[in-house]
Design a protein around this nucleic acid. Structure first.
Lengths: 148, 148
DNA sequence: ATACAGTCTACAGTAACTATAGGTTCAAGG
DNA sequence: CCTTGAACCTATAGTTACTGTAGACTGTAT
């Protein structure tokens, strides 16, 4: 069977919300879908696939531009996949950094929550701890260039 | 010594960039600093401390609103610290989720990069893998195969 | 037949910055 | 003292990736 889905069902299926799907279409990331008699979007499996790809990549932390690049690479399957590989590698490196930082920060937060047990703010370490850089294991903010 | 710093020095010291400091001031997160004769901002240690707190919290993933809340809590040190604790706990939970997902995604990316070794895109799994949800360990958006 | 959930377009708003233009201030070198 | 160039100032616009709203239309379940 043709298995065409309305935008709402696609949204549910992919965990993406309806406006976001329309947004992706608008910026040219998703192809224009066919429309019903009443002008409603109807998606086939390939569109769902593509959206899954996009969402998945977004969750991996790829910016839309990188995703756009990957898609356009995919449309020229004769080329070497070096470029796609490079994008993935770059992203991988970034993810490694983010993981490390998140882990360090989690233990810090855990300690904070542990220390703050129904006391008063005067004795509460949450705020103090957050102001104190010496307790932080990641030493990458002595110099600028944050924002990954 | 009075130890007053220009905005640029504060920026370097905290890893925050100059515009961002002005932005924080503009949205009322940082107090108005005193100015030099020539109208340039001059910061004392307490401002640097506060900015450190903000940056640190941002790195922990706190949104500016949560930070605003924490700051206003800190200004009423007689209250119970339950509220601050709640904010931290909430954030901690969120970080846990992000960690899990990032870890899952990293192994996926690693596999992708591994499989894509100088081949052609036709044989390259980077794009395919990113479209394939079955390989993903987080299953929070599963497709409803047929209409319920 | 009607209710009502889902969809449509168009546009405004959000978070958290980042960049630009066009001017002023400050510290160092000649 | 004068100049030069980096750092600073304000104001405004742009960025990314969405999210929300208004007001009208469609599709379907009862």
């Amino acid at each position: 069977m043709s298995n065409e889905l309305t935008i709402g069902r696609v949204a549910k299926g992919t965990g993406c919300n309806v406006q976001t799907i329309r947004y992706y279409e608008q910026i040219g990331l998703l192809p224009l879908p066919r429309r019903s008699e009443g002008n409603q979007r109807l998606y086939d499996d390939s569109a769902v696939q593509k959206l899954s790809f996009i969402r998945h990549a977004r969750e991996l932390g790829f910016p839309l531009q990188a995703i756009r690049d990957l898609i356009s690479l995919a449309d020229r399957p004769d080329k070497s996949c070096e470029a796609a590989d490079a994008i993935a590698r770059e992203q991988l490196e970034d993810i490694g950094k983010r993981l490390q930082r998140l882990q360090a920060l989690r233990s810090e937060l855990e300690r904070m929550v542990e220390q703050c047990k129904g006391g008063r703010i005067a004795d509460c370490r949450v705020i103090e701890t957050l102001g104190d850089h010496s307790l932080c294991e990641t030493d990458d903010h002595v110099l600028p260039k944050v924002r990954p």
